[in-house]
Write a protein that binds this DNA or RNA. Structure first.
Lengths: 253, 253
DNA sequence: CGCGGTTTTGACCGGCTTCAAAGGGAGTGG
DNA sequence: CCACTCCCTTTGAAGCCGGTCAAAACCGCG
């Protein structure tokens, strides 16, 4: 069974699903959404209108820079995007990773507060900030996306502030296993608990996301390999013989 | 000159201002807000309607628990609130600190993703989640509050992931100096660059916010005192003889 | 096969944590 | 007014995790 990071690790977001239904919270509280997901016709209509355009990017293209004028809002149709900030001396922190169906580039100040860069080849739909500001109907959708970001950022703060290197790497790996590792985890399905994940990120990107160095990420992965918890098939392709064992290392339990 | 944490450290939010104007981004991009702040009559009207109620809390009261049903949204009218998460073994991470004018408790999943607890005596206006979901007009306001949270959480991720203990403490102190320490910093105003800040948080709360231990926070503060960068007047009351000197220790420059 | 880039491994170091004890301040009771 | 207690904070000493620096291994590719 193969899972690609392009497939949202912690949600069932799909571009088309986004156009048709509310994005439902799926991280920590997967399956607990009580509101019925309903069609969002205003959003669907806007996306297919001439006021938006679709842009293709290669892997590692910069979509916008910190301090750029924030005139647009972006919707990931395909691929993944990371948001990061830089300190003056070059230290980098990846603050968020966005997948299909996620919106980014919303800004209150009129200036982006971080860089946006693709991790893999991506298709991004570019919306006009003013269109969204003007329409109460569109804002409902933006709202739900923002709430999802806030919850993800809360989780990330816990990871960065309180987890050990091993817990961070284990948590990172669990991102790629939908529906597992959070409260209400389904547990291993009958039969095999194996999974193969494809990272599609460099060690540097992983390290900058986890607040570690590449050496530490590498060492933790090597150590997990030695212990038989993972098998590294091809650098960015990792086999998890037992998802449950990884999950127990995340620090959540 | 005395500054209390109750006065929002990084913004000019006021409950009344919130009711009348858009909250403007003031953190990293203070003063760069391009949209004119305008009245938000729907928001003002809703706040003064009978559908909301005002609640008073003592310091360190828990407003809601993680996993509580998220039926309400909360508006800080006076005081401060911290949001935190706990790991199973008791490690705590304060993920956000909210001040007057800030909204919290928005949830997509129907369950709060963290605890909310007052830091000081506070007045909180309690809104009905469904009222907000139903009204496009109200959502515009919620939206701007969420964007503000996202930017704050990005900054916090950088702090937790990439800053040293001293940089974290210096960044924390700069929260209490409005309009300083960010891009577009006004610099020291003519004359004195002194400030006295009142923390109104225990060392434990500060440590859990900064991803450190109380001992480390204490040691960094003691070291700063030894170097004459700060003067500790009364444990939670710290004099900064030169705001600029603190700012240079934040790691931003 | 050789080259350039990334990743892994090794050795060492230092900053932060941990554990322990002393210090300090507010409230209480004699 | 002072002694006593409790709790929070500070200080000290030691250890460890993760960072740093350097070199080797690996990988894709011409």
């Amino acid at each position: 069974m193969y899972v690609d990071l392009k497939a949202r690790p912690d949600a069932s977001y799909r571009p088309d699903a986004v156009a048709v239904t509310h994005p439902v919270g799926t991280g920590r509280y997967a399956g607990t959404e009580r509101r019925p997901t309903s069609a969002d016709p205003a959003w669907t209509a806007y996306l297919s209108s001439a006021r938006t355009r679709l842009e293709r990017y290669e892997a590692h293209d910069v979509i916008f820079h910190e301090d750029d004028s924030a005139d647009h809002v972006y919707l990931v149709m395909r691929g993944q995007v990371m948001l990061y900030r830089l300190l003056a001396d070059g230290r980098r922190q990846v603050v968020d990773i966005l997948a299909e169906g996620d919106l980014f580039g919303m800004s209150m100040s009129g200036i982006y507060d971080c860089y946006a860069e693709t991790l893999v080849p991506a298709e991004i739909r570019i919306l006009d900030r003013r269109d969204i500001e003007r329409s109460g109907e569109l804002q409902g959708h933006v709202n739900r996306c923002l709430m999802h970001r806030v919850e993800a950022l809360h989780s990330h703060a816990v990871l960065l502030g309180r987890k050990s290197a091993q817990e961070r790497v284990a948590s990172f790996l669990m991102r790629f296993v939908p529906g597992r590792g959070e409260v209400g985890c389904a547990g291993p399905s009958a039969g095999s608990d194996e999974k193969v994940v494809v990272l599609r990120m460099t060690r540097q990107e992983i390290a900058d996301y986890l607040g570690l160095t590449i050496e530490t990420v590498s060492r933790v992965l090597s150590d997990m390999k030695r212990r038989g918890i993972i098998a590294i098939e091809k650098n960015d392709r990792i086999r998890l013989p037992s998802v449950c064992r990884i999950c127990k290392l995340t620090g959540i339990h």
